[in-house]
């Protein structure tokens, strides 16, 4: 890493650590859920370290407990992860030039928050002139900094939850802390009318469609929010949200 790349990487770490409490809280909640499931200690640790997808992990726990076959749980993982398929379009526009192994690794490590903060800072893909000048891959190092910070904070929360789950009483209602922690991420994003309309739509659809399997309510909420967001968006084309 050159010093410029190192600096971009460190800035990425800092950007993500501003959201540290939210990530720790979600990690903790997920860790506790895994420890209280049918998984053993080491299975829970392995799932935390390798799968690195909180919503998919939580969705898999009741299915594992019910003894469903592996392929059914994997289909569920795919369905629950559909939002990432949409996000990968955004990453593709920025990073299609990288070698294949880097693209897969970069994609795998880009969870919700990394993608969110990345597109907030780089809403449009680089022009061809910018791409020519991009010999230092600073955007990639910035994203990698966020990923490393996100992964580390998530594992600290999650492993703490796995190890101490049985010392934490259910009566604390800690699951709800994860929900509150998301408020601090979402509220600053509601800075324009179109974002507020999109948010209200997403919330309403997510609730109406809550009964659907595979957490398809998330996908429907995204599609509905895109339609309403585009209709209500008055900002000039190409400007960031």
């Amino acid at each position: 890493m050159t010093s410029e790349q190192k600096q971009a990487f460190i800035e990425g770490c800092k950007e993500m650590s501003k959201t540290g409490i939210t990530i720790l809280t979600w990690g903790l909640v997920t860790g506790i859920a895994m420890a209280k499931s049918t998984l053993t200690l080491y299975e829970a640790l392995a799932m935390s370290l390798f799968v690195f997808a909180g919503v998919a992990q939580l969705a898999s726990l009741p299915l594992i407990a019910a003894g469903l076959p592996i392929w059914m749980i994997l289909v569920t993982t795919f369905m629950v992860n559909l939002r990432f398929v949409i996000f990968s379009l955004g990453l593709q526009a920025h990073f299609s030039y990288l070698p294949a192994w880097r693209r897969v690794l970069l994609g795998y490590c880009t969870a919700d928050f990394s993608y969110l903060f990345f597109v907030r800072r780089y809403p449009t893909p680089p022009t061809s002139a910018e791409h020519q000048a991009n010999t230092k891959h600073l955007q990639m190092y910035w994203l990698m900094g966020m990923q490393v910070s996100n992964w580390t904070l998530w594992q600290i929360g999650s492993i703490t939850g796995i190890v101490f789950a049985h010392q934490i009483p259910n009566s604390w209602g800690l699951e709800f802390a994860g929900a509150i922690a998301l408020v601090a991420i979402i509220v600053p994003m509601l800075d324009r009318a179109s974002a507020r309309w999109a948010a209200v739509t997403a919330g309403a659809v997510a609730i109406m469609a809550y009964g659907l399997p595979f957490r398809l309510n998330i996908l429907l909420a995204i599609i509905a929010a895109i339609i309403v967001g585009m209709k209500t968006d008055r900002s000039p084309k190409g400007l960031n949200p």
């Binding site: 919503v55 939002r83 949409i86 996000f87 379009l89 955004g90 593709q92 526009a93 299609s96 919700d112 993608y115 969110l116 597109v119 809403p123 449009t124 893909p125 699951e175 709800f176 994860g178 929900a179 998301l182 408020v183 991420i185 979402i186 994003m189 179109s194 974002a195 999109a198 948010a199 739509t201 997403a202 919330g203 659809v205 997510a206 609730i207 809550y210 309510n217 998330i218 909420a221 995204i222 509905a224 929010a225 895109i226 967001g229 585009m230 084309k237 190409g238 960031n240 949200p241």
Partner: peptide
Amino acid sequence: VRVPAWLLEAIRFAPLAAMIAILVPE
């Protein structure tokens, strides 16, 4: 693959909507 500009415009709302869809039912 080249992702068309209109599609990138559209998916700007996706991460916000995903967060909301995870939070609001909770």
